[in-house]
Each structure stands twice: as C-alpha cells, then as structure tokens.
Computed example of a mutant assay.
Amino acid sequence: MSFAGVSLISDGKAIGHAIDVSTASGYHLLVVNGYSHIKATTPNGKGIFSLPFMVGGHRWRIKYYPNGDCLMRANSVSIYVFLDENVTEALKVWFEVSFVDELEMQDPTYIRRREPINFSSSTLVWGQMDFMETDTLENCFTIRCDLAIATTTDLLIKVPPSSLQQHISDLLSSKEGTDVTFKVGSEVFVAHRCILVAQSAIFKAELFGPMKEGKMASVIQIEDMEPKVFRSLLSFIYTDSLPKMEIDMVEEEGKAQEALWLQHLLAAADRYDLRRLKALC
C-alpha cells in the first residue's frame, strides 16, 4: 500500500499533509490528538472530516465521529470512508479501518478477503458505525484507512478454493509414496509417516523418536484394535474430519452400532492423542 498522507485531528479540525497516490491502493492516517477534549466539545452526531486525499485517481475523505453518528451509538466512535466526488460508474473498493498497530488487518490479502464494496454517486459513503467504544480509547491514537480499488484484472481473477485437504486424502486412497505398513488383525494398511506424525505426537514418538527402533523397515503390529476402527482413524488423520461409519455397522442395529463404533473410535483417538477426533466423537 502506498502512503496517502496524514490528517491530524485537533480542536475539531484536520491539519496535515495529503499525498496523491496514482496507484490503485493506498492508505491515509488519521491521528487523533487530545481525544478527551475533542469528545467533550463535539456533540453526538457531529463528524470531523480528514483532509482530502487521492487514491487510484479518485478523491477520498475519512469522517470521524468522536461520540458516534447517532444517539444509538453515543458510546462509540463511528468511522466512515467518503468518496469525495461524483463518478459516472460505480467503483468496487476494498477498504479496512484499523488502529495503526493492528498490522494483520493492513495486509493486502486480509483486506481483500471479502467482496469489494460499491461506491457510486448514489452511495458515496461506507464505514463502521461502532468502530470502538469511547471509554476504551486513549487520549491519543492513530487510525489507518486502507483503500484498494478493484481493477478489471482483480474482478476477473477468481481464486479457487483450497484443495489441499482433498489432495492429502487422495494420498491415502492411492497409496502413492507410502513408507510405513501396519497390520491390524488380519488386515494390512499402508500410510505416510510424515502425515501421521504431523497429526499425532504418539505416532511421532513411535516412528521418529526413541521408540522407532525395529519399526523403520518392519510391519508394525497394532494390538487391541479392530481393522475398521484403525481404518477410520487413518481416514481422520488424512482428512481432519469425522469418517463415515462402514455400511455393515449400521444396517441391522442402527444407533446402538453407531454408539459402539464411536466408543471404539474415541478410545483409538485417546490412544494416539488426537484431540480433535476425541471432541468430534
């Protein structure tokens, strides 16, 4: 984000220096000095404008209400962003208002996490009616307003949803690259050490810790667990979600079998210290 200047609010008016930012994104600082005095001398419903500043070829202002913009918000500070000009076409804009030390909220990725807002000649203002309660504010503070105007490229590019979980799940079903083998009852299961240890401290100790001796090349025997429960355990480790019950477990005894299956799965989750699975069970 490019710096678009600073407005110092003191005695009910703004002074400072505004910078014209030609790029599509920028930020302006609103410095409030002597908030207790400003609050005492500015009635509810009265706002104070920042200096006008330019971002993306358009003129903007911040409007700050020390005692809220209406009676319902008399105990809050209200902050609004104004498009200080008429436009022939609506502008799609991402904006975020934060305190200057809230660095996470000023990251461009964070700012663009929502759909952009439409600013137009009929809707020139957007903001936060309840930005902060008045009794929590210090006498001097700085508010940062970030603006990013959505370009044609921004609007055309759609970021696909994450598919990482599906890819990891596919590794279990495809068995590609497996490097550890378990025998549970009469059934054999293969898995990936790195995924197991990422989810379970117990697997980490068994496969990479002092307990690993004799388990690097051999088949690991799992005692006191049914194959279908271990299969469900692996499914959770690879998907991070509660696995579905196997069909033969619910055909005849219904809810009783479901309760028994969850009980066994809970015991397995406790055995391998899978806290999320324990909570889901």
Results as ranks from 00 to 15, higher is better:
221 Q>C: 04
128 Q>E: 12
83 L>H: 04
16 G>L: 05
9 I>A: 02
179 D>E: 08
167 H>L: 01
185 G>I: 09
182 F>R: 05
90 A>E: 13
255 K>R: 11
106 Q>A: 11
269 A>I: 01
239 T>V: 00
147 L>R: 05
60 W>G: 04
41 T>Y: 04
179 D>K: 02
188 V>P: 06
152 T>N: 14
249 M>C: 09
88 T>C: 10
130 D>T: 14
99 F>Y: 02
222 I>N: 08
144 R>Q: 13
67 N>F: 12
153 T>G: 02
141 F>T: 07
100 V>Q: 07
222 I>D: 03
50 S>D: 11
139 N>H: 13
266 L>G: 14
115 E>S: 13
166 Q>L: 10
137 L>F: 12
248 D>L: 06
134 T>V: 14
118 N>D: 13
142 T>Q: 12
9 I>M: 10
40 A>G: 06
244 K>C: 13
63 K>G: 08
70 C>A: 09
29 L>E: 12
203 F>G: 00
252 E>L: 07
34 G>S: 05
224 D>Y: 00
94 W>M: 00
196 L>Y: 15
68 G>H: 12
46 K>F: 12
123 T>F: 01
254 G>Y: 08
61 R>T: 05
265 L>W: 07
35 Y>C: 11
62 I>N: 06
121 S>H: 03
246 E>Y: 05
1 M>T: 14
147 L>D: 03
127 G>L: 05
141 F>S: 10
185 G>L: 09
188 V>S: 08
112 R>W: 10
103 L>Y: 10
54 M>D: 12
33 N>H: 12
215 K>S: 08
19 I>V: 15
247 I>V: 11
246 E>T: 02
278 K>R: 15
226 E>D: 15
141 F>P: 05
146 D>C: 12
191 A>H: 11
183 K>E: 15
133 E>I: 01
112 R>A: 06
98 S>D: 01
150 A>G: 06
198 A>F: 05
264 H>T: 04
46 K>Y: 12
21 V>A: 08
99 F>V: 01
175 K>T: 07
66 P>G: 08
140 C>L: 02
230 F>L: 02
42 T>F: 07
5 G>H: 13
158 K>E: 14
265 L>M: 11
139 N>P: 12
90 A>F: 01
94 W>Y: 15
110 Y>R: 11
183 K>I: 11
93 V>A: 06
250 V>F: 13
66 P>Y: 04
5 G>F: 15
34 G>M: 09
166 Q>T: 10
9 I>P: 03
153 T>Y: 13
182 F>P: 11
72 M>F: 08
16 G>Q: 09
21 V>Y: 13
186 S>C: 04
18 A>Y: 09
78 S>G: 08
128 Q>G: 01
72 M>Q: 15
125 V>P: 02
52 P>S: 09
29 L>R: 09
184 V>P: 01
242 L>C: 04
161 P>S: 15
78 S>H: 09
225 M>R: 10
5 G>E: 08
117 I>H: 13
68 G>S: 07
195 I>W: 05
52 P>K: 01
191 A>L: 03
225 M>L: 03
51 L>I: 09
230 F>P: 11
43 P>E: 02
54 M>P: 00
259 A>W: 01
273 D>I: 02
37 H>W: 06
